[in-house]
């Protein structure tokens, strides 16, 4: 049920009048949540920002799902990258200062996976933002009318079927 609701919301959000900037910003922030280990202070800040800034939450959730599934594949890459940053000579003074600071220790910056994935997701933020913005524009202008005509979209939008599935789900539980 959640998946259908979620899919319905995604299609609705992409087809809505929401600005491509809002959609793309939400997607890029969701990417950070998806790529980096979830239980971290920086993700708390990202969630907080998603909640208070006028960005699209559905695209953020879409990115969280997609990148959350992709993240384990790049686990080794994140570790190696994080390790190389943490071993960079000129940064040792900075890292030592951070290590001795309680707040930064709580961010788990000294974990290879956390730092590696966080830096990579930050680096990917701008390209992903602009990439998704282009896609959102294209979708709203060209793709949306076609998607609206797809049978699956009609089924998803049909409140009758949705209600039927919803009732079935409630009865089951």
């Amino acid at each position: 049920m959640f998946f259908i609701k979620f899919l319905k919301k995604i299609i609705k959000a992409l087809g809505s009048n929401a600005s491509p900037n809002q959609l793309a910003f939400g997607f890029a922030m969701g990417m950070i949540l998806g790529l980096t280990p979830f239980w971290n202070i920086h993700n708390l800040i990202v969630i907080f920002l998603i909640a208070i800034i006028n960005v699209n939450i559905s695209t953020a959730l879409l990115a969280l799902t997609i990148f959350g599934l992709l993240a384990p594949i790049f686990d080794g890459l994140f570790h190696v990258f994080g390790l190389s940053i943490l071993n960079t000579g000129p940064l040792q003074g900075l890292f030592t200062g951070m290590y001795e600071n309680t707040f930064f220790v709580l961010t788990r910056f000294n974990n290879t996976l956390v730092l590696g994935s966080f830096v990579i997701s930050l680096a990917a933020f701008v390209p992903v933002f602009f990439g998704f913005k282009i896609f959102a524009k294209y979708y709203q202008e060209k793709l949306h009318p076609k998607v609206e005509k797809w049978k699956i979209t009609k089924i998803l939008k049909s409140s009758k079927i949705f209600n039927l599935l919803n009732t079935g789900y409630k009865l089951k539980n």
Binding site: P37, L83, L86, Q92, M98, E100, N110
Partner: peptide, 16 residues
């Protein structure tokens, strides 16, 4: 040897 999905913690100071 870090476990998958866990990473490795690097220590920078003897103090802590």
């Amino acid at each position: 040897k870090p476990k998958r999905g866990k990473g490795q913690y690097i220590e920078f100071s003897q103090k802590y």
